[in-house]
């Protein structure tokens, strides 16, 4: 029994890490007033860059960093469109969800002899073995650190205050000398890096290679976690843990002689999310300027 609980915790943390990192990216971006529906695409390119660099360098840390770089680079597109050219942010995000996976698969075929799968990386991101079945992925520890860091930056630093101000009332922030465009650029690129890390936590820790379906909807789940967590880093963290725990329950209950249909069981995380929202969370209020391009001098 006890070892079962430890196993459930281990699995929960493993599944949670990619979601948390990506959701943090979503929080940072949306708090600055930019909707980011492109998290999925940024995750995919992170997963690919992580696996590709991880394979060729045989160093998972190099892969992890490359993933952040790739995600951040893709995010630049979103920034150019939604900040400089005042694009519709939903549309530009959807575009990234095509460009990210499209580019990843294209490059994958170039680097891996026409295959849409990468070769397995020789070394995964390390796990801290804590005895028996209990272990913690280092990516989960990174996720905790980033959650704390994001919380600290958002609520305890000048830059975080500016970022939140830009997301609530950009014109007011502008009159006080905050460079709205610079803050939003930084927030979007940061969110791309975090989503890239999230993708790599999937392709370098949960599994050990890139496949076309290695990221299948986690970016959208992370996006839901942002709203679930009411646009706060700690809230999003908790939402991801709940979701990952439900996924772990599916794994635990699905094994062995279970009488419940595995298909019905697989619905659990999604049903649970809706149920928790109905019962406990209630209405979520987005940052006021979320999704609205800022135009200097406009009323």
């Amino acid at each position: 029994m006890f070892s079962n609980i430890l196993l459930a915790v281990t699995i929960t943390f493993m599944y949670a890490a990619p979601l948390i990192l990506t959701a943090l990216g979503g929080v940072v971006c949306e708090r600055s007033g930019v909707v980011n529906i492109g998290l999925e695409g940024m995750m995919v390119i992170g997963a690919f860059a992580g696996a590709c660099v991880g394979y060729y360098s045989a160093n998972p840390w190099a892969g992890f960093l490359a993933a952040g770089l790739a995600g951040g680079t893709l995010a630049v597109l979103h920034a150019v469109a939604s900040v400089t050219f005042k694009a519709n942010q939903t549309v530009s995000g959807v575009a990234l969800n095509f460009i990210g996976p499209g580019l990843s698969l294209f490059l994958c075929r170039m680097f891996f002899d026409g295959a849409t799968m990468s070769k397995p990386v020789p070394r995964q991101m390390p796990k801290l073995a804590l005895g028996g079945v209990f272990s913690i992925d280092v990516t989960f520890i990174i996720a905790i650190l980033f959650t704390a860091l994001t919380w600290f930056i958002l609520y305890k630093t000048k830059w975080g205050l500016r970022l939140r101000a830009v997301g609530e009332h950009p014109a007011a922030a502008d009159t006080l000398g905050v460079n709205v465009y610079a803050v939003r650029y930084a927030a979007i690129i940061l969110s791309g890096m975090l989503a890239g890390f999230g993708g790599a936590s999937q392709s370098l820790a949960v599994v050990s290679l890139f496949t076309p379906t290695v990221i299948s909807g986690q970016g959208f789940i992370a996006m839901a976690a942002v709203i679930f967590g009411k646009w706060t880093p700690h809230g999003a963290f908790l939402a991801c843990i709940i979701f990952a725990f439900a996924q772990a329950m599916v794994v635990m209950l699905g094994g062995g002689a279970s009488s419940i249909s595995p298909q019905l069981l697989s619905m659990l995380p999604y049903l649970l999310t809706i149920l928790v929202l109905v019962l406990f969370v209630g209405k979520a209020v987005a940052p006021k300027a979320n999704g609205v391009p800022y135009e200097k001098g406009a009323r």
């Binding site: 469109a81 530009s92 959807v94 575009a95 095509f98 996976p101 499209g102 294209f106």
Partner: peptide, 15 residues
């Protein structure tokens, strides 16, 4: 997959 890049770019410019 080049087509997904093309479609993504079209949507990007429409945005």
């Amino acid at each position: 997959e080049i087509i997904n890049i093309v479609i993504g770019t079209i949507i990007f410019f429409i945005a």
